Simulated assay, not measured.
Amino acid sequence: MTILVVGGTGATGRLLVSELLERGQNVKVILRSADKLPENVKNHKRLSIIQASVLSLSDADLTLHVKGCAAVASCLGHNLTFHGIFGPPRRLVTDATRRLCNAIRANKAEVPTRFVLMNTAGNSNRDLDEPISFAQRCVIGLLRLLLPPHLDNEKAADYLRINIGPSNEAIEWAAVRPDSLINETEVSPYEVHPSPTRSTIFNAGSTSRINVAHFMADLITDDEIWSKWKGQMPVIYNKGH
Results as ranks from 00 to 15, higher is better:
residue 216 M to V: 07
residue 239 K to C: 04
residue 178 P to D: 03
residue 171 I to V: 10
residue 149 P to G: 06
residue 177 R to F: 05
residue 173 W to Y: 07
residue 214 H to W: 15
residue 11 A to D: 13
residue 36 K to C: 06
residue 210 I to S: 06
residue 145 L to S: 11
residue 113 T to L: 02
residue 54 V to Y: 13
residue 200 T to W: 13
residue 131 P to N: 00
residue 15 L to T: 05
residue 191 E to I: 08
residue 217 A to L: 07
residue 95 D to H: 11
residue 35 D to Q: 06
residue 158 D to F: 07
residue 211 N to C: 08
residue 17 V to D: 04
residue 79 N to K: 13
residue 134 F to W: 01
residue 83 H to M: 06
residue 49 I to D: 04
residue 177 R to L: 07
residue 69 C to D: 07
residue 10 G to H: 04
residue 131 P to G: 01
residue 173 W to P: 09
residue 183 N to E: 15
residue 183 N to G: 12
residue 210 I to G: 04
residue 179 D to E: 09
residue 95 D to I: 04
residue 39 E to Q: 13
residue 127 D to F: 14
residue 147 L to H: 10
residue 166 P to W: 12
residue 241 H to P: 00
residue 38 P to F: 11
residue 50 I to K: 14
residue 196 P to N: 09
residue 67 K to Y: 08
residue 12 T to V: 07
residue 46 R to C: 11
residue 233 M to T: 07
residue 74 S to K: 15
residue 204 A to M: 09
residue 237 Y to G: 01
residue 224 E to W: 03
residue 112 P to I: 07
residue 42 K to E: 02
residue 87 G to V: 02
residue 107 N to P: 09
residue 29 V to F: 06
residue 225 I to P: 04
residue 240 G to I: 01
residue 12 T to S: 12
residue 60 A to C: 15
residue 231 G to P: 06
residue 174 A to E: 09
residue 56 S to L: 08
residue 169 E to C: 14
residue 96 A to R: 13
residue 2 T to G: 11
residue 132 I to R: 00
residue 239 K to Q: 08
residue 110 E to K: 09
residue 216 M to P: 09
residue 113 T to C: 09
residue 122 G to C: 00
residue 108 K to C: 12
residue 4 L to S: 06
residue 102 N to V: 13
residue 132 I to T: 01
residue 220 I to W: 00
residue 30 I to Y: 10
residue 67 K to T: 07
residue 175 A to V: 01
residue 44 H to M: 08
residue 121 A to G: 00
residue 69 C to W: 03
residue 51 Q to M: 05
residue 5 V to P: 05
residue 19 E to S: 14
residue 158 D to I: 06
residue 26 N to S: 15
residue 97 T to W: 09
residue 156 A to F: 05
residue 177 R to M: 02
residue 58 S to T: 05
residue 112 P to R: 03
residue 218 D to F: 08
residue 222 D to S: 06
residue 227 S to I: 01
residue 230 K to S: 00
residue 91 R to N: 15
residue 231 G to C: 04
residue 97 T to C: 08
residue 63 T to I: 12
residue 121 A to H: 01
residue 224 E to F: 08
residue 126 R to N: 12
residue 223 D to H: 13
residue 166 P to F: 11
residue 80 L to T: 09
residue 16 L to K: 01
residue 198 R to D: 01
residue 26 N to V: 13
residue 54 V to C: 09
residue 199 S to H: 01
residue 101 C to Q: 08
residue 147 L to P: 00
residue 55 L to G: 12
residue 25 Q to G: 14
residue 229 W to N: 00
residue 195 S to A: 12
residue 48 S to M: 12
residue 162 I to Q: 15
